[in-house]
Design a binder for these strands. Structure first.
Lengths: 221, 221
DNA sequence: ACAAAAGTGTTCAGATTACACCCATGG
DNA sequence: CCATGGGTGTAATCTGAACACTTTTGT
C-alpha cells in the first residue's frame, strides 16, 4: 500500500521540484529489516476481496494514527503484483500493491509517519522498488488523466492544481498556457467559492466529473 | 494468461477493423463452466516466481499444441490481479493476469484454439473481464510505445507495421503521414532484406532497440 | 502604499492533416 | 501489359511554446 500526498507549499520561491511527494511509512521493530521503514500492508483474509483488504488496512492505519481521512483516500488504484521467491526471507509472499492518494499530509499520532517519497529512508524487503513503481505510475498518469484530483481537496484554485503538476513532474509550467489548456479540456467547473489571502482572491474549482477521467493526450504545457 | 495475435491479412479491401485480434483459448470439459472456453493459466508453485510460472504455463501450452513459438512470446507483461471472492465458485482464487503477444496465429494441434478476441465465445469465470482489460491495455499502449513489435515478426515492412496499428486501433491511417512520423521517431532501421510479391519489393525493417520503448506521445496519424 | 498572488493575449515555430500520383515487380 | 502494393511531397491548418503586465485584495 503506497499512500502518497504532497506537503503544503512552504517557500513559494523554491523550485517546483523541491515540493517532493510524501509517502506513509511504518518503522519496523522486528527482524528482518528491524530499524528500516516499511510500506503498510496486511494479509488478505480467506474470503476477502483485494479491495476489501485494502480498505481494512487503511481503516486500521486510520485508527492507529487518529486520522480518519486515511480510511477514505481520494484515489485508489491497483499497481503491480510482486511475487519473486525470496522477496521476504521468511517465506513465499505475493504482494499486490495499491496506490492511494490523499489531499494533504494529515497529522499522524501513531508510529506511521510521512517520509520523503523520492528520497526515502531505508525500506524493508523490496519496498523501495514498489515505491518507485508507484511514483512512476503517478507521474505517467498525471499526463493523460485527471489523477491530480487525488492530491487536492474537493475544491481548489487553479494555482493549487498547477502546483500539483509542478511538484509531481518536478518542473515549472507556464501559467497562461496551463490555464488555456485546462479551459479547452472543459474538465473543471467553478464552485462559486473563493480562496482569500493577502492578495487578490482566487476562484475555486472542482472536477466536473468527480472521478478519474482519461485524456487522449496530455497536459504537458 | 491472455495470448493475443493478429490474423494474416485476407481481404486487403476489407476495412481495417475487420482484422480483429485473436486470443488463445482452451475449451473446458469439466464443471464449472463446462463447454465454455477459458484463458490458459495455472497455479504458481510454492517456490516459483510469477514470471517463472508464466513461462511454465506457456511451455506446457507449446508442448500440447506442438507450437514451440508459444513458449517464447514476442512480448510479455503483467496486467491486473483479480481476487474477488466468488470469482471461482470452487473457492478462493487470486489470479495475476499476463499479456503475451505473438507475431502470428501459429497453427495449434491440441485443444487450444484461436478465437476472435473482440467477439469471443462464452468464457468461463471472469475471463471475459480479463480479456477486455488486456485489449484495453494493448490499444492504449500502441499509442505511446512500440508494443506493436510484439505483433510482428523480427523484420517487417512498413505496411505490415501500419497494418498492426490499423487492426488494433480499428481505423485506417494515412500512409504518407504514418511513414513521416515513424521516420521522425528514428525507432526503425532497415535490415537490408526485402519482402517480394507480385508487386514492387518492400524494404524490411526492425526496431532498432529490440524491446519496448515508451514514447512521449503518440502515433495518432 | 506596498506586497502578494490572480488573471489575461499575442506571436512564432513546429506538428499534424489532407490529398494523388508514379514505381518496381510478378504473373 | 496489367494488377498489386511500394514509395514519395506540398499546402493549409492547428497546436504548443515563449513571453509581461494589470488587477484585486490584505496589511
Amino acid at each position: 500500500m503506497v499512500v502518497l500526498t504532497l506537503p503544503p507549499v512552504e517557500d513559494p520561491e523554491a523550485p517546483a521540484a523541491a515540493r517532493a511527494p510524501l509517502v506513509l511509512a511504518v518503522p519496523r521493530d522486528h527482524q528482518p529489516y528491524a530499524g528500516d521503514w516499511s510500506l503498510p500492508g496486511g494479509l488478505v483474509g480467506a474470503d476477502e476481496g483485494l479491495e476489501a483488504a485494502v480498505s481494512r488496512v487503511l481503516a486500521d492505519l486510520a485508527r492507529d494514527s487518529h486520522a480518519q481521512i486515511l480510511a477514505e483516500p481520494r484515489h485508489l488504484e491497483q499497481l503491480e503484483t510482486f511475487g519473486a521467491p525470496g522477496r521476504d526471507p521468511r517465506g513465499r509472499v505475493v504482494s499486490v500493491s495499491y496506490l492511494a492518494l490523499l489531499g494533504a499530509p494529515v497529522p499522524l499520532t501513531g508510529r506511521a509517519a510521512w517520509q520523503p517519497a523520492t528520497a526515502p529512508p531505508p525500506l524493508a524487503f523490496d519496498h523501495a522498488t514498489i515505491l518507485a513503481s508507484a511514483l512512476d505510475r503517478l507521474r505517467a498518469k498525471l499526463s493523460y488523466s485527471t489523477v491530480a484530483y487525488g492530491l487536492l481537496a474537493d475544491s481548489f484554485t487553479l494555482s493549487e492544481l498547477q502546483g500539483v503538476y509542478e511538484a509531481v513532474l518536478g518542473r515549472t509550467i507556464d501559467k497562461r498556457n496551463f490555464r488555456r489548456k485546462l479551459a479547452a479540456l472543459e474538465l473543471l467547473e467553478e464552485t462559486g467559492g473563493q480562496r482569500r489571502g493577502p492578495h487578490r482572491p482566487a476562484s475555486l474549482y472542482r472536477f466536473a466529473s468527480g472521478g478519474l477521467v482519461l485524456l487522449d493526450d496530455v497536459i504537458t504545457t
